[in-house]
């Protein structure tokens, strides 16, 4: 038996099959680099660009509808051109990606936080607890996230003033997307917990009178969480798409703090008058971002589940 305890964590990391698989999948490496660059650009926007596209005071209508820099009328200060209010498209995309990523990740975090505990409880205890939780999940699944978002949006819009509504628009979006997709995570952890609870290491833990809560936390949870995280990666991409759809429909984030979806909707109005860049570049960003995240998710799934290969 090779001694592995003398290896540092870095050696272990470099030697690991997952690192190896990653380094031998050029597509995944490219996707990871692209994703990383986009995340950095999104959250580093205040440092990377001097434009503040969503402070109306800093905008000048003189700069409105400038085409990208390589077009005859383009100017080099606005690489991807400007929109109807003179906003720099590149800066708007950077800030918009930030909103999209935030909504995507936080909503997945919320569904994971609801789905994993419910799934573990359903799978471990079985019986009527399982039936109750999974029926609830089934009902949840029949309601599409767009419908939930429209409902919550409708309620908040009528009951709250428009200023308050703008403040809580993003949290509302996160909650409605998060609520819509928790059953997916509950199902995965439930089937994992059903398999694990029959294994003898659980019996061994019960034998020494380990309280059930600790059995769930220390033994079941670490053994079922893996597959969920893989699905969660793809879940982020899905959440970004849902967010973009909702924002495009006008029930998502307000135009004052636009996401990629809002930018596409704004630009859509100018598409037929020739100002294609206003909607094209945010749309391209959305496609590249979602594709990259999906590619990473697919790779994770293939690597961790050899049966699917």
């Amino acid at each position: 038996m090779k001694s592995t305890h003398s290896m540092t964590w870095w050696d272990r990391f470099r030697d690991h099959d997952i690192t190896y698989s990653f380094c031998h999948s050029p597509v995944t490496m490219l996707a990871a680099i692209v994703t990383l660059l986009m995340v950095l650009a999104a959250f580093g926007a205040p440092l990377l660009t001097s434009y503040t596209p969503f402070e109306p005071g800093s905008l000048s209508l003189m700069d409105a509808f400038l085409p990208p820099a390589w077009e005859p009328e383009g100017v080099s200060q606005h690489l991807l051109g400007t929109d109807g209010q003179g906003r720099d498209i590149l800066a708007a995309i950077m800030y918009g990606t930030q909103v999209s990523l935030t909504v995507g990740m936080l909503s997945v975090l919320l569904s994971v936080a609801i789905g994993i505990p419910l799934g573990i409880i359903a799978g471990y205890f079985g019986g009527w607890v399982d039936t109750a939780i999974m029926r609830f999940a089934d009902i949840q699944l029949t309601i599409p996230p767009i419908l939930i978002a429209l409902m919550i949006d409708g309620i908040t819009r009528t009951s709250l003033s428009s200023e308050v509504h703008e403040v809580i628009a993003i949290p509302v979006l996160i909650v409605s997307i998060g609520l819509a997709s928790w059953p997916q995570y509950a199902r995965i952890t439930r089937s994992g917990a059903m398999v694990e609870r029959r294994k003898d290491y659980i019996a061994a833990a019960k034998l020494i009178q380990t309280p059930t809560a600790l059995v769930l936390l220390r033994h079941i949870f670490p053994n079922v969480v893996g597959p969920t995280l893989i699905v969660a990666t793809i879940g982020v991409a899905v959440a970004i798409i849902i967010e973009a759809t909702l924002s495009f429909l006008g029930v998502g984030v307000p135009p004052t703090t636009p996401s990629l979806g809002t930018l596409i909707r704004i630009g859509n109005n100018f598409l037929f008058s020739g100002e294609w860049w206003i909607t094209f570049f945010p749309a391209l960003t959305l496609v590249v971002l979602v594709l990259s995240v999906n590619l990473i998710g697919d790779w994770l799934r293939d690597t961790f589940n050899p049966k699917l290969r």
């Binding site: 833990a205 034998l207 670490p222």
Partner: peptide, 28 residues
């Protein structure tokens, strides 16, 4: 339960794969 312990059949399913051997032995 301290005085009555058990050894199981499957050497694969009776040890928590996420725990170090030291922690597995120290759990009781």
């Amino acid at each position: 339960s301290k005085r009555v312990q058990m050894i199981f059949q499957s050497p694969y399913a009776s040890l928590d794969p996420r725990w170090r051997v030291r922690d597995i032995i120290a759990e009781p």
